[in-house]
Design a protein around this nucleic acid. Sequence first.
DNA 1: CGCGTCCTTGAGAGTTGTCAACTCCAGTGG
DNA 2: CCACTGGAGTTGACAACTCTCAAGGACGCG
Lengths: 230, 230
Amino acid sequence: MIAVSQIATPVKPSPALFAAPLFKPQAEFSELERTAVRMTVGRDQTLFFEDDPARYGYKLVTGALRSCKLLADGRRHIADFILPGDLIGFDIDDTHRFTAEAVIDTMLLRYPRAAIERLIEQQATVALSLMRRLSGKLCDAQRQLLLLGRKTAAERLASFLIIMAERCGDPDRVSLPMTRLDIADHLGLTIETVSRGFSQLKSQKVIELKGSNIVLLRDRESLEDLAQAA
Amino acid sequence: MIAVSQIATPVKPSPALFAAPLFKPQAEFSELERTAVRMTVGRDQTLFFEDDPARYGYKLVTGALRSCKLLADGRRHIADFILPGDLIGFDIDDTHRFTAEAVIDTMLLRYPRAAIERLIEQQATVALSLMRRLSGKLCDAQRQLLLLGRKTAAERLASFLIIMAERCGDPDRVSLPMTRLDIADHLGLTIETVSRGFSQLKSQKVIELKGSNIVLLRDRESLEDLAQAA
DNA sequence: CGCGTCCTTGAGAGTTGTCAACTCCAGTGG
DNA sequence: CCACTGGAGTTGACAACTCTCAAGGACGCG
């Protein structure tokens, strides 16, 4: 199953794209870059479903995806948000282990898995680079396990804001492209608890909200205390 | 910091150990095997602490470890149990991302990281093999995120039993080397809730307990329904 | 301006946590 | 052989955090 709204075009006509750091600009990846195809996925459209055969790896250029899993009765959990610069489908797996949906309109680069695997086998530095990314993802996942297993709602929210601030680059201004429901499904909470958490942080002057999607971190220290950063 | 009770001896005098599948018995790993040192860690002793420099990778031969993280106030989460055949410290990371403690007396083989990294760089098949393991761990972690984020106590317990049955090899007899507290800290519950869960499964004739550490799965189908396997 | 979607806030319910007592079992020593 | 002891597990009563259900508010867009 492929979501209908996807648009894929060869990337060659648009060399300007390469200005963005696709991978580290290493010669080793240049062969792979030649196989890149640019594509866009509209908001709430699906890039691929869990258990789909994994034919491509992707690098996110702009926008955001969510990687989610569903239970039979509809409960949803979002394992991670994929942001610009992140890779998905680069692990060694013949089927996708989660569904990938666009949080907002998203542009990505698509690489055939065959080319990726060939490169891994031929270039040790590529294998190491991908292993480093995988290790990092595993480390992130373990941090999230601690969050879901042992932190309170307020602690989860504070931790989430700190992590998003790190990933977005700006230390005290976080743009949240996702809805409260997405955040709730990522933090193992409900939309109401997330909303109440934001309200409480706001009343404590720890954060300030510009609209509902821009969060200004006004008191970093308190936020980190609240997050119980392990 | 190194726990005092660890005993490390060169593995050479005991060639019988190699009978167990250390890695897949591939020629590529033989160089690494020559660097192996056998060691034991006593029950509740620490193999390494979170943030320790990662000087070695380990392969567990017998026993069981827990990989855990702590919050400042003492709350603990166990990301995973490491069972015979599992590797730890083989990811590309200069410091350990969790504390590793022995659940019971444990024997493992220790490999210097320098040798591991050399092998990864020189042997593409080794890199691929380790990437496959890393991918598998990431997939497991994502399943656990769903469990912690969205499943009820009963569902978590049922899922745990199914996963342990798979990992132990016997489809309907699970040996649990860890305590109820370890299980609780792995499933994001309390010891009392875990205990109540076992009691309920027992009264529903889904499981039978031989002592408190041996679980017989009497009604696989019900157990899988209860687990909400996604 | 009206509509829909998302977000916020309130009140009450429910699952799980907390605290406490009790049981079970293995190991120890009289 | 049996009582004692300590750790682990079980069970009960109550509390608390988060969820559920409901209503109202904010914002963007036609």
